[in-house]
């Protein structure tokens, strides 16, 4: 993973202290490995010259770092106040029915991980659903089916071969 190492070095250059680069480094590693596997943590630790334990200590503080494997796609439903007032619970429940899992969980085929998350900063445009880090505003229960179909169709073909 020479390119991950280089990416992390480029991040380090932005900070007077290399430890400042730990969040961007973890993010790059997660993008490379899909989740922060022991291998990914090892790569970050080495590039930053920190102990793996310290990297895990920092990573485990944040909601967006996955210390367990996740599905190929990650769907997050905001159920905080503003979204809840305009129907996010119904959206979440429809996802759970469609995927056959309770949030947080991953559909049996490993395709979609469903999470319930706190305010995403789109409260006036709710319900807000984040799909692979891209926000979808004004999300309705009837959008759940088509979205899941699209995500299933865009599965990388080589996986689970």
């Amino acid at each position: 993973m020479a390119d991950l190492y280089d990416q992390i070095q480029a991040e380090i250059a932005k900070y007077p202290d290399r430890r400042g680069a730990i969040l961007p480094a973890l993010r790059h590693a997660q993008e490379h490995y899909g989740w922060l596997s022991p291998e990914a943590i090892e790569a970050v630790a080495e590039a930053l010259d920190l102990s793996p334990a310290r990297c895990v200590a920092v990573a485990s503080f944040y909601d967006m770092f996955f210390l367990q494997p996740v599905g190929e796609h990650v769907v997050e439903v905001c159920t905080n106040l503003s979204c809840a007032l305009v129907g996010s619970d119904q959206v979440l429940r429809r996802f759970e029915d469609e995927l056959g899992v309770r949030a947080p969980g991953t559909s049996e085929d490993g395709c979609i991980t469903l999470r319930r998350v706190e305010c995403l900063g789109g409260c006036g445009w709710g319900p807000v659903v984040s799909v692979d880090e891209e926000y979808q505003e004004h999300f309705k229960p009837e959008d759940v089916g088509p979205l899941c179909e699209r995500l299933r169709a865009s599965r990388p073909t080589e996986s689970h071969a």
């Binding site: 106040l81 503003s82 706190e118 305010c119 900063g121 409260c123 445009w125």
Partner: peptide, 8 residues
């Protein structure tokens, strides 16, 4: 960081 619920 904008995370106080309701703020966008």
């Amino acid at each position: 960081d904008e995370s106080e619920p309701g703020t966008f």
